[in-house]
Simulated scan of single mutants.
Amino acid sequence: MSETVVLELRSVKKTYRSGDEALLPVLQGANLRLHAGEIVALVAPSGTGKSTLLHLAGLLDTPDEGEVTICGQSTQGLPDSGRTALRRDRIGFVYQFHHLLGEFTARENVVLPQLIRNVPKARARAEADRLLGMFGLGHRINHLPGKLSGGEQQRVAIARALANGPAVLLADEPTGNLDVQTADIVFSQLLEAVRQTGLAALVATHNEELLSRMDRVLTLRDGQLVAR
């Protein structure tokens, strides 16, 4: 693990309005420092703020108070264009459901985010093929998602998340929609990819069997992040 901090949350607070008047405090001063090469699990009951924390860390939402820093750059007061650029260039997302584009092949799904970043098409295709090969999908690059198994679809989604060389990977129940055996295979490949690339990963999961393979395990208690 590197000493380089790639994601930092400082005293982050977030409250949601429930109904007309009631307020629902979710995060109440959460702090986190995530280092390059580190894989951290986030384990907490549903409704305690895991997804909210991931959305804030991924710049999909803004905190009411506190600060989110990505690769040393504060996002406080950053315009939407700057937040979008940071998300595109520095952050990869993996969700429980793969959200692949069904009309595009596995290769094309991994190429598209690179084209949005203005990567030349030939280079984007080569990187897509490299990533899909790393996940054992070299023989499936021209298949549509509907022709892939659930585990294969999720591996394409992970390859897509890594396509732009992010510094941070945020995963929300990445194996939650898979059977136990497939989940173990996909998670093993995800861990290997993270270790090889040296990025930082924050993984929300309910899978207790996976926790021993993480560097740290955090939970949310009273709106704050604490070691479990």
Results as ranks from 00 to 15, higher is better:
Arg216Asn: 04
Leu32Ser: 14
Leu53Cys: 08
Ala193Gly: 10
His98Arg: 06
Glu21Thr: 03
Leu60Gly: 03
Asp64His: 09
Ala44His: 10
Asp89Ser: 00
Phe104Val: 02
Val110Gly: 12
Leu115Lys: 11
Gly133Asn: 10
Val40His: 02
Ala157Tyr: 06
Ala157Gln: 04
Gln76Tyr: 11
Tyr16Val: 06
Arg160Met: 06
Val119Trp: 12
Leu162Thr: 02
Leu54Ile: 07
Ile39Cys: 11
Pro166Ser: 08
Asn118Pro: 01
Tyr95Asn: 06
Leu24Phe: 05
Asp222Glu: 15
Asp129Phe: 00
Val43Ile: 12
Leu170Met: 08
Leu210Lys: 12
Ala200Lys: 04
His206Asp: 09
Tyr16Pro: 11
Leu56Trp: 08
Gly136Val: 13
Thr105Asp: 10
Gly47Ile: 14
Asn109Met: 07
Glu173Val: 07
Pro63Trp: 04
Leu54Arg: 00
Leu190Asn: 00
Cys71Tyr: 14
Ile91Met: 05
Ile39Asp: 04
His143Leu: 03
Lys147Ser: 07
Lys13Ser: 13
Asp179Met: 09
Glu38Met: 00
Ala161Cys: 13
Thr175Gly: 07
His143Cys: 10
Thr182Pro: 10
Val40Tyr: 03
Glu67Asp: 07
Asp89Glu: 13
Pro79Gln: 12
Thr4Gln: 11
Ile158Met: 14
Gly176Phe: 04
Val168Lys: 06
Gly66Leu: 06
Arg17Pro: 15
Gln73Gly: 03
Ala200Leu: 00
Asn207Ser: 14
Leu170Ala: 03
Gly66Ser: 03
Arg87Ile: 04
Thr48Lys: 14
Pro113Asp: 05
Arg107Glu: 15
Pro45Phe: 13
Leu148Asp: 09
Thr52Asp: 03
Leu101Val: 10
Arg88Asp: 08
Arg88Phe: 05
Thr62Ser: 10
Asp20Trp: 06
Ile70Gln: 06
Glu38Ala: 03
Glu209His: 15
Phe187Cys: 12
Thr197Pro: 00
Ser46Phe: 12
Asp179Arg: 06
Ser149Thr: 07
Glu67Cys: 10
Ala159Asn: 15
Ala106Asn: 00
Ala124Ser: 02
Leu7Glu: 09
Ile39Gln: 12
Leu220Asn: 06
Glu173Pro: 09
Gly49Pro: 15
Asn177Leu: 08
Arg123Asp: 14
Val168Asp: 11
Leu53Val: 13
Leu210Met: 15
Thr75Arg: 12
